[in-house]
């Protein structure tokens, strides 16, 4: 005997479907909230984005707009690097203004090499092309390899150390 579709049955079916949706939502949320690798992956992607952007920012400066440029530098940095930038700012401004240099950077590739999500520390490596245009010389560009360290701040990941990976001679001594 075919069963009639009654309002009660419809309501029951709807409720069952809604309950299933709620349970599904709950289990997905629980899995995601307790999935350390998802949180870790998110941090990794944030570190890479902040690292690449930071390297680009800190390799970009126009003597005609030096205040904004250096403000961007400082907003990309924290810790020792920020202290260093602030300490050397006056001398650096003079140099850039007298050389009338315009420096731009393009990130070619970057990767996160270390990430300690709990400690809020990370390392990145970034290959970058830096173009320098000064009043005296023709613009020239060179490929550079940068190693950066990042620290998590209340305002996101920021560079706390930045250096060019040194070239070592085959004997192990610096060139």
């Amino acid at each position: 005997m075919p069963r009639a579709i009654t309002p009660t049955r419809t309501a029951l079916a709807l409720t069952a479907a809604a309950a299933t949706a709620a349970i599904w939502g709950g289990t997905s949320w629980y899995a995601a909230a307790n999935d350390d690798s998802a949180a870790f992956a998110k941090s990794r992607d944030e570190v890479l984005a902040a690292g690449e952007q930071g390297v680009q920012n800190l390799q970009t400066l126009d003597y005609r707009d030096i205040d904004d440029g250096l403000a961007t530098w400082e907003s990309s940095a924290t810790g020792d690097l920020l202290t260093e930038l602030k300490g050397g700012r006056a001398d650096f401004e003079k140099q850039v203004k007298s050389a009338k240099s315009v420096t731009t950077a393009k990130v070619l590739s970057g990767a996160v090499t270390e990430l300690d999500d709990r400690a809020g520390k990370a390392s990145v490596m970034v290959a970058v092309r830096i173009t320098v245009d000064t009043a005296k010389e023709k613009p020239g560009s060179k490929e550079s390899r940068i190693l950066g360290e990042l620290t998590r701040t209340d305002d996101g990941w920021k560079l706390s150390a930045l250096s060019e990976a040194p070239v070592e001679s085959a004997t192990g001594a610096g060139q």
């Binding site: 995601a32 998802a38 949180a39 992956a41 998110k42 992607d45």
Partner: peptide, 14 residues
């Protein structure tokens, strides 16, 4: 919770 991260990228997570 999963926003921004590519779930298929296992670099460092694995």
């Amino acid at each position: 919770l999963q926003d921004g991260a590519d779930p298929n990228n296992k670099a460092l997570t694995d």
